[in-house]
Design a protein around this nucleic acid. Structure first.
Length: 313
RNA sequence: GGUGGGGUGGCCGAGUGGCUAAUGGCAGCAGACUGUAAAUCUGCCGGGCUCACGCUCUACGUAGGUUCGAAUCCUACCCCCACCA
């Protein structure tokens, strides 16, 4: 697929803004399949806590990118880019329209713009190194990272760890690889950003948090923990899930769970908005999701037809 | 009714004469972002003018007082909490 990149609608927006509903409404216009770009919905069994589309919704429109790994196992933006590229090619080959839908801006970027060719990192050594690093405090790691990679742009434990790993396991700094082994995007994204006035979004978030708890979020998390998933490992470290874990560990009251989730989700939604505002290359179609989903879908379908007619690259 | 403790910026909570618009935390706002990204990290955060330095106004329950100077000391009053009645 070297020649012409496939132009693909990419629907993004903060959590709870109504992406799923809009995408489903869009399916009334086009024969489409959804490629979910969501770093938490890749986890099996975390259905309530990640606000996964329901069985019915998934039956109506095929979804890709859900239930890929078990809690505790790592997924990644790079893997998503590879996987999604495959799904998209496959969907297109079947004559349907792939539509990327998701709130994980970094995943979308990895797919649309490419990351860099990551040199092989020996899993064994990496695990050992990580175990060793986890015993040091973040400040120290940041200092090491800066020493090992002059281009280290700062950050906390997570980014410092990554920087140190790459430097030690490959012999070259992370920023070297990032500059020298750049990849290119594999699709031509056509961005649609769903927005909502902050008060509206906050209200939806609060309602959804309550709903999650009512539908059994805590029990869902308890069951995953009971099966041995690490409480602070990949998957359970997300908004909503983390709060449930805290309750199950006796670190917060049951009544405080929904409220804590609401706040954390609000903050997450804000970060997402910042990302979409600054990190997404325009031109972008922005729609206020206060409008009903079918109306949004019509607007998107119309703009898409126009964009194609004009032969936008 | 009595005794003791307390009333601080949106909330919690330090501060006990000047260095205090007032430590911290939370919430909020803004920003960063190349394989853990729902993560990780940064800045701002009483109001007004200012890009900024800065200037200015209003603030530590209320009203007075002491002092060159008070959130901090004194007096009265209001309210809250605990215990005793």
């Amino acid at each position: 697929m070297a020649a012409a990149k496939l132009r693909v609608p990419v629907l993004v927006g903060p959590t709870a803004v109504g992406k799923t509903a809009t995408a489903l409404a869009l399916a009334e216009h086009w024969p489409l399949e959804i490629v979910s770009a969501d770093s938490r919905q890749v986890y099996r069994r975390l259905d309530i806590g990640t606000a996964k589309p329901t069985r019915k919704e998934r039956a109506r429109v095929p979804h890709h990118g859900l239930d890929l790994v078990d809690p505790g196992h790592r997924y990644s933006a790079g893997r998503f880019a590879r996987d999604a590229t495959g799904w998209i090619a496959d969907i297109a080959a079947r004559g349907k329209l792939p539509v990327v839908v998701g709130g994980t801006g970094f995943y979308v970027r990895a797919l649309a713009e490419g990351l860099f060719q990551e040199p092989p990192l020996d899993p064994e050594r990496r695990r050992a190194l990580e175990a060793w690093l986890s015993g040091h405090d973040a400040l120290e790691l940041v200092r090491w990272a800066a020493r090992l990679d002059p281009g280290f742009k700062g950050g906390g434990r997570q980014r410092a760890t990554r920087t140190i790993e790459v430097a030690l396991l490959t012999g070259r700094p992370l920023t070297y690889w990032q500059g020298a082994a750049r990849q290119h995007g594999l699709i031509e994204p056509w961005y649609v950003v769903l927005t909502a006035p902050r008060p509206v979004l906050h209200q939806r978030i609060a309602a959804r948090a309550e709903e999650m708890v009512r539908r059994g979020l805590v029990e869902e998390v308890a069951s995953v923990l009971a099966d041995g998933a690490p409480a602070h490992g990949a998957g359970l470290d997300g908004v909503g899930l983390r709060e449930a874990v805290e309750y199950l560990h006796g670190e917060r009251s049951r009544e405080s769970v929904a409220g804590a989730i609401t706040i954390a989700t609000r903050q997450y939604a804000k970060r997402q908005e910042t990302w979409f505002r600054h990190q997404l290359p325009g031109p972008v179609l922005a729609l206020d999701s206060v409008r009903p989903p079918d109306e949004l879908a019509s607007a998107i379908a119309g703009a898409w037809a126009e964009a194609r007619g004009l032969g936008v690259p």
